[in-house]
Amino acid sequence: MGTVHEALDALRLVDHHCHGTVTGPCDRAAFESLLTEGEAWPGISSFDSPAGVAVRRHCAPLLDLPRHAPAEEYLARRSALGEPEVRQRFLRASGTDVFCVDTGYTPVPLTTPGEIAEAAGGTSYEVVRLEGVAEAVLAAGTEPDAYADAFRTAALDAVRRPGVVAVKSVAAYRTGFGLDPARPSDAEVTEAARGMLARGGRLDDPVLVRHLLWTAVDLGLPLQLHTGFGDAAIRLHRVDPALLTDWLHLTAGTIPVLLLHCWPHQRQAAFLAAVFERVYLDVGLTLHHVGPARSGAILAEALEITPFRKLLYSSDAYGVPEFYHLGALAFRRGLADLLQRRVDADELSLPDALRIARWTGRENALRVYGLAEDG
């Protein structure tokens, strides 16, 4: 039957939330800016962070370099190989064959879902970011009293594109979750749209964000929600998923809600997954930021009370393809260590552990998104 480590090493993963990677050359400044969620600061290198150290340790060998290769050598080798070759090496090494790609954040040109699938030798699907849809409707000069219908129509058109399997909201970045959970009235939406049209900018009006979340319910597809850890725009105390509790009560029994990343609120997310039938979670980008050395601790907290059919795998890889490989490696090692310890302590049978590994790494995502087993 083998060990849990052997089973997870062989399992073809489903990455239920990720992004494209840069398409052009990546110099040191650009690469370091993508290694962490923080800015580049004078005298402080992103290579001297847990993520940077993990990249030099676990990614260098895939570029034919020794483990812990110096940053200068790592970047020189990357440049010599070129982004297409680097992308293919890391995507194939991740052992992932299904990708659900958020296409809504492209401050620089990124690979498309199709290009990700080609590099990995797998299959990609699209996740539509609803804030981008709403902002396009507002930018088109829609009248305030027509905004609600225009947004709904645009969102329906977006999710009907071939290959779309889910929608996503970044309400965490725009307002946080301390919102009135009720569906806003038509009058409230019209007045909020009038204000947004007057001042422009990103969708950050609380009423319009509430309207967006309720529109997601109406669309009927799984909804991904960024929670927890992010860049400096996040107010961490406002993105605790527990703040969604009243809204989850109101929307219970409708759509799957997938809480992304969660750190440091993975225990609150686990509670929600334990008490709401249609709530799921991952620990996403947390894994490549803490690296394989700490991934088991994060997963252990996420799985303290989470039903085993409720935890999914995602890399949240963005910008650099190293994070596809590093996220998968940290997930496999962390989960295998956790499950194997429970087997060795006779707290879990080996068949149960192997089933949990398959569910978490692959089958839970296939079921939630309604994907065929062959991808």
Score class of each variant (00 low, 15 high):
residue 29 A to P: 07
residue 24 G to N: 11
residue 47 F to I: 08
residue 37 E to L: 11
residue 47 F to C: 08
residue 34 L to W: 01
residue 50 P to W: 00
residue 33 S to E: 15
residue 58 H to A: 03
residue 39 E to M: 08
residue 44 I to N: 13
residue 52 G to S: 09
residue 19 H to Y: 08
residue 51 A to D: 06
residue 27 D to T: 11
residue 24 G to V: 06
residue 50 P to Q: 02
residue 52 G to Y: 11
residue 46 S to V: 02
residue 39 E to V: 12
residue 30 A to D: 03
residue 58 H to S: 06
residue 44 I to P: 05
residue 46 S to W: 06
residue 42 P to R: 12
residue 53 V to N: 04
residue 55 V to H: 08
residue 43 G to P: 04
residue 50 P to N: 06
residue 43 G to Y: 08
residue 39 E to L: 13
residue 21 T to G: 03
residue 28 R to D: 14
residue 17 H to W: 02
residue 56 R to H: 02
residue 55 V to Q: 03
residue 32 E to C: 05
residue 26 C to K: 08
residue 52 G to A: 05
residue 38 G to V: 06
residue 48 D to A: 05
residue 16 H to W: 14
residue 44 I to L: 15
residue 35 L to M: 15
residue 34 L to D: 00
residue 27 D to F: 01
residue 20 G to Y: 01
residue 26 C to H: 04
residue 49 S to W: 05
residue 48 D to S: 01
residue 26 C to E: 04
residue 45 S to F: 01
residue 28 R to P: 03
residue 33 S to G: 15
residue 54 A to I: 04
residue 58 H to M: 01
residue 29 A to I: 10
residue 33 S to D: 13
residue 30 A to C: 11
residue 47 F to W: 15
residue 31 F to T: 02
residue 16 H to L: 07
residue 52 G to L: 09
residue 27 D to K: 13
residue 25 P to C: 12
residue 19 H to P: 11
residue 32 E to S: 00
residue 46 S to G: 14
residue 34 L to I: 03
residue 22 V to P: 00
residue 56 R to M: 10
residue 34 L to T: 04
residue 27 D to A: 13
residue 18 C to Y: 07
residue 35 L to R: 01
residue 21 T to I: 07
residue 49 S to C: 01
residue 38 G to M: 09
residue 31 F to A: 02
residue 17 H to Q: 04
residue 29 A to S: 15
residue 33 S to T: 09
residue 41 W to D: 13
residue 37 E to K: 06
residue 19 H to N: 13
residue 47 F to V: 05
residue 47 F to M: 11
residue 56 R to T: 01
residue 58 H to I: 03
residue 58 H to Y: 15
residue 36 T to G: 00
residue 36 T to P: 09
residue 48 D to I: 06
residue 35 L to H: 02
residue 17 H to A: 04
residue 42 P to W: 14
residue 54 A to D: 05
residue 53 V to L: 14
residue 49 S to T: 15
residue 34 L to F: 04
residue 33 S to K: 14
residue 54 A to K: 04
residue 56 R to V: 06
residue 18 C to P: 03
residue 34 L to Y: 09
residue 56 R to W: 00
residue 56 R to I: 01
residue 50 P to M: 04
residue 17 H to L: 03
residue 26 C to P: 03
residue 32 E to R: 02
residue 54 A to Y: 03
residue 55 V to M: 05
residue 26 C to T: 12
residue 18 C to E: 12
residue 38 G to N: 10
residue 41 W to L: 14
residue 34 L to P: 07
residue 58 H to C: 03
residue 39 E to Y: 15
residue 34 L to G: 05
residue 30 A to P: 09
residue 26 C to M: 14
residue 45 S to G: 07
residue 19 H to R: 00
residue 20 G to N: 05
residue 22 V to Y: 07
residue 54 A to N: 00
residue 56 R to D: 01
residue 19 H to I: 09
residue 20 G to I: 01
residue 47 F to D: 10
residue 39 E to N: 11
residue 46 S to C: 11
residue 50 P to S: 07
residue 43 G to Q: 04
residue 58 H to P: 01
residue 43 G to V: 00
